[in-house]
Design a protein around this nucleic acid. Structure first.
Lengths: 258, 258
DNA sequence: ATAAGCCGTATTGTATAGTGATACATGAGA
DNA sequence: TCTCATGTATCACTATACAATACGGCTTAT
């Protein structure tokens, strides 16, 4: 009767109530920061009664704050505690963090650790500087993988067939007028990254931004992650990048291997 | 029949299934990073069948990874996405971040933003340096409020009766041999913080660590948060702290007011 | 002023969906 | 080879989540 029929079709271990509750948590994002009951109904597509019950439960469990006057829900500190648990669970984080800090001190520019997450990348560590704008300063941000230097350099370590499939099928969300949407151009860029051992993009997310990424290799096979640096094109010409940034970046990424 | 009878007693809006699912998420922490079904049963106190169903659902919803060979569950990237949403939801974060970065550059030492969360503080922003150890580098960490400089300086802005109650009742978890557990001593320290406008502790979490915190005031009334700096007692004597650290710290904390 | 909407909250009969017990399968250790 | 612990699958039962609806407070329009 609903649109989830195909997904839910006879999985006797699937508990719909919990899934709905998770959908409520997921309704919050950078544009939806404080949601009323009615807005939650709209964003989740659930029944008003269901949202009432589930949001109430999440509130009582400490997962949602509720403003006593506006009656709006918002994320609670528990969401940060979950991030804390995540950080401990991923061994890459502890290996990468001290080296990223070193890189950040050396070059004095924004440094990130990105991981592949489906067809997106997700930033799991970020070391912003004062010029970095807010969205680029906080962890957990997702971007379409093949539209980013980090995503491309990771793909460049994949078996060619899989990488090609990804380049053909994965989404691209144009962020600036200069965002590349031509998949053959992306394919060429991934090939180039395979040769160079790093990937570089310009003006893809923000105008006048140069993004450079190097792969973090696992024991063998595809890259586990990528170390990525953002620079202003105004401050860094090609030779400065080659001489000041790249050696330090590649050194950092290689050092994380463990 | 279960131990939740007092909590659940007749709240017709409370959905137990969702609450149980949340308990599964909460079972992961810094010491429990990768949990088997049996361990989840043990840690949550739920029935094996329930854990089987709920963990399966969380896995299908992308909230838990499942290692195909060890069959263990672990936090997924979605946990970082939730943190991302939290960061956008709390307006203090965007106000504080650039100033914290500035402070970090100025003094070259570890800088944190802490907020009150029940009877604990939680670190919501952290700017570590290379010497910072891992647990002190990642957001979402909670510590007993009255055992920390940040917690005490926030309490020092509370109405005296409430602060006294907190000092009497809130938990203290001794972390080092020198952790202060005498509540009258803590009370004196809070009073001193009220006079000075900052709080300082030594050897409370780690030996030879000096922790200094200044309050971030709201429009009026109690502090919204605290800016906190960690130093090595070996590198900073009292006069260096007074001259090099405190002015910058207080300036930063005051500047966040907005 | 009054009415109409909208929204959050409370209530209730009903059947569905989660429950818990149990059985089965697999792999590790003794 | 046996035993035990653990993960997975199945199933009858009924407790529990469900959707509909009613109520009351607040804002907006007329």
């Amino acid at each position: 009767m609903s649109e989830m029929s195909s997904e839910t079709k006879k999985d006797p271990l699937f508990t719909g109530t919990l899934a709905k509750g998770i959908r409520i948590l997921r309704a919050f994002d950078e544009q939806n920061v404080r949601l009323s009951l009615a807005e939650l109904v709209q964003r989740t597509g659930l029944e008003k009664s269901a949202v009432q019950r589930l949001a109430h439960t999440l509130h009582r469990e400490g997962m949602l704050n509720k403003d006593p006057v506006t009656r709006r829900f918002s994320p609670s500190h528990a969401w940060l505690e979950l991030a804390y648990a995540y950080y401990w669970s991923d061994p890459l984080i502890a290996r990468a963090l001290p080296r990223l800090i070193g890189l950040s001190r050396t070059i004095g520019e924004t440094v990130n650790l990105a991981q592949m997450s489906g067809d997106h990348i997700i930033y799991s560590l970020r070391l912003p500087n004062q010029r970095t704008h807010f969205a680029a300063s906080i962890v957990g941000r997702r971007l379409p993988a093949i539209a980013t230097a980090a995503g491309r350099v990771m793909l460049s370590t994949w078996p060619e067939a899989e990488a090609d499939r990804a380049i053909d099928l994965w989404p691209i969300a144009p962020m600036t007028p200069k965002t590349v949407t031509d998949r053959d151009q992306i394919r060429a860029d991934v090939r180039l990254a395979a040769q160079n051992g790093y990937a570089m993009t310009r003006n893809q997310m923000i105008l006048n931004e140069v993004s450079i990424a190097a792969p973090v290799h696992g024991v063998a096979g595809p890259a586990e992650a990528a170390v990525q640096v953002s620079l202003s094109a105004h401050s860094y010409d090609e030779t400065r990048i080659q001489e000041e940034i790249l050696p330090a970046l590649l050194d950092t990424a290689n050092g994380i291997l463990a």
